[in-house]
Nucleic acid binder design. Structure first.
Lengths: 143, 143
DNA sequence: GTCCGTGCAAAAACTTTGCAACCCC
DNA sequence: GGGGTTGCAAAGTTTTTGCACGGAC
């Protein structure tokens, strides 16, 4: 079970739906989940939680800084736990699998580019879309 | 007027809707347009073109390599002319304005990272989301 | 003339919102 | 007990699709 304080510390009431969604992020094999992914997992464990609530909870968690949202190709928003460290993503276009990476030099140059142009960086995301049709890619039904 | 051969060379029939959409990309002040942007501009010039056709034409143009599609924050797909050179984007979260940039070192490191992990890069996009609330940013109604 | 292309309306896909019942503190 | 939270259904947004008509070659 997740620690209820993760919610209280952000001023969020501790409710069953919130705890269950948070648990999923802490226990799932995949770090990156869509609202639909979460809804299905909750259905699987017969938690009686509506899809609308899943969306609301994800939005609140993102605003609270517990989760980070990404929009990869494919139209669906993807969420992952915010564990502090920024990183970028490799996304397989075949199976939807996501790998993370971090490159200090790339970060440095991004900051420089924005600064040179007088912009304050709010957020930045580097998405590398790949095919991993080999063994590295356990083709799973694209969710 | 755009050159009809741009279409024929890609195996696309030369039709009024296709030519008009292509023209918009060649003549618009903004390089980056959404389907809605284009539809509105066409309405303005009383071209009788349906929104569904705009979507179909944009999809065909992207597949033909005439346009490139991006998904920035905000849910709407954005298209720009494919002029060959890859580049990345700075996107203002206040006004939607888009600036382009290219950094050879960043490109090099992306390629290296994908290669190290055994992935074939299909596409890659670096989005830097910024606030340009100063003079640099002519706040326009976010479209 | 043959096909592909188009407009319109309907549907699909994803997400948000209104509202009454419910539960945390 | 009161105000935030939830489930359901309905609505919103963006994009796609079905179908009959129309235009390119």
């Amino acid at each position: 079970m997740s620690d209820p304080r993760e919610l209280r510390n952000q001023g969020l009431k501790v409710t069953a739906p919130r705890m269950k969604v948070l648990d999923l992020f802490h226990t799932s094999a995949e770090r990156h989940l869509t609202a639909e992914d979460i809804y299905r997992k909750l259905l699987d464990e017969h938690a009686d939680i509506g899809l609308a609530t899943v969306y609301r909870v994800l939005t609140q968690f993102e605003q609270a800084g517990l989760l980070v949202r990404h929009h990869f190709e494919g139209g669906k928003a993807v969420y992952e736990l915010n564990e502090g460290g920024h990183h970028d993503h490799l996304v397989c276009m075949q199976c939807g699998r996501v790998e993370e990476f971090y490159d200090a030099e790339i970060e440095k140059r991004q900051a420089k580019i924005a600064k040179e142009r007088g912009f304050a960086i709010r957020d930045h995301q580097l998405h590398i879309y790949v095919d991993c049709t080999k063994s590295a890619c356990p083709h799973r039904p694209k969710g």
